[in-house]
């Protein structure tokens, strides 16, 4: 498994890194941290590059490197990764350009095999989409402080599962809310839910929502299979059957003390573009971390 964590600034990225790394560990996933800086217009790109070369000559880091350095040190300090200081390492923070807008970042005198650092410049959705396609990532993680529209576009356009770390408080005890239904993405969401529950050691609330009072065979079977999986993995769980508008019921059940894991919508992309989807509605209305499994 490969996880991509997008960091924006030191102020807002701490919980993104914490949650992202904890889940990545449970998947034994390789982690890459990416910082996407602002887009540089075509008019200015070579001039800016020239100025940046001069800055590097004077030992100044390019903007964004300090955020990646902070992220690396934060992970090492909190034992999410093992960092080794070596004398033969790079004499200063070094950027290796691998594409027009993309650089691999190597920190001064330090190595870690647990994490890669990437610096990019450009439109954030295009850059993350490109990075996911290039690295074949399974999960992309972003902070909830990012603009709403961005989370929306990520769910729509990025070819990996998406974890949005909305307002996560490490001192609070969370539950895991796992909405299940008869869609073909539910089994995958259940598998991810198991790993997340194991990562945090938390109880799972299995939620089946029907728009009417009746629960069809497909819904009941999905809930049954999910429960069986929980039992098999030794995870404490509870089954809930509720009716109403799914997005509203999920929001009310989740409150602000659940991590939500749910499958992506299987609607066709044009319908999703114009009418939205259940995961999008849940993401927009919930103040909780949410993992949308693709």
């Amino acid at each position: 498994m490969k996880f991509l964590i997008a960091v924006g600034s030191k102020e807002y990225s701490e919980s993104t890194l914490r949650v992202g790394m904890q889940i990545a560990k449970s998947f034994q996933a390789a982690v890459t941290i990416v910082y996407v800086g602002p887009k540089i217009s075509d008019f200015s790109l070579p001039h800016v590059r020239l100025a940046q070369e001069r800055m590097e000559e004077w030992d100044f880091d390019r903007p964004g490197v300090e955020v990646l350095e902070w992220a690396f040190n934060f992970l090492a300090k909190n034992d999410y990764i093992t960092s080794t200081t070596i004398e033969s390492g790079f004499p200063k923070n070094t950027l290796v350009q691998t594409d027009g807008n993309r650089c691999d970042v190597y920190l001064q005198g330090t190595i870690s095999t647990d994490v890669n650092l990437i610096l990019r410049n450009g439109d954030i959705i295009s850059e993350l989409r490109d990075e996911v396609a290039r690295g074949g990532f399974d999960v992309t993680i972003i902070g909830g402080s990012q603009k709403r529209r961005m989370a929306h576009d990520m769910i729509q356009y990025i070819d990996s599962s998406i974890l949005i770390v909305n307002k996560y408080n490490p001192d609070k005890t969370y539950g895991l809310l796992l909405p299940v239904d008869d869609s073909r993405k539910t089994p995958q969401a259940v598998k991810y839910g198991v790993r997340v529950a194991q990562a945090f050691g938390i109880k799972v609330d299995l939620l089946t929502v029907s728009k009417t009072n009746k629960f069809g065979k497909g819904y009941r079977n999905a809930a049954k299979r999910a429960a069986k999986m929980m039992r098999r993995m030794g995870i404490e769980y509870e089954n809930h059957f509720k009716h109403g508008d799914p997005a509203v019921v999920i929001r009310e059940t989740a409150g602000n003390d659940h991590i939500i894991v749910m499958g992506t919508s299987t609607k066709n992309p044009i319908a999703k573009f114009f009418m939205g989807s259940k995961p999008l509605q849940v993401m927009e209305s919930n103040p909780c971390p949410i993992l949308i499994v693709k």
Partner: peptide, 15 residues
């Protein structure tokens, strides 16, 4: 604006 000229973009790129 930042995009007005390369000079503006260069200083903005310092962060």
């Amino acid at each position: 604006t930042v995009v007005a000229s390369p000079t503006c973009m260069i200083i903005h790129s310092s962060g």
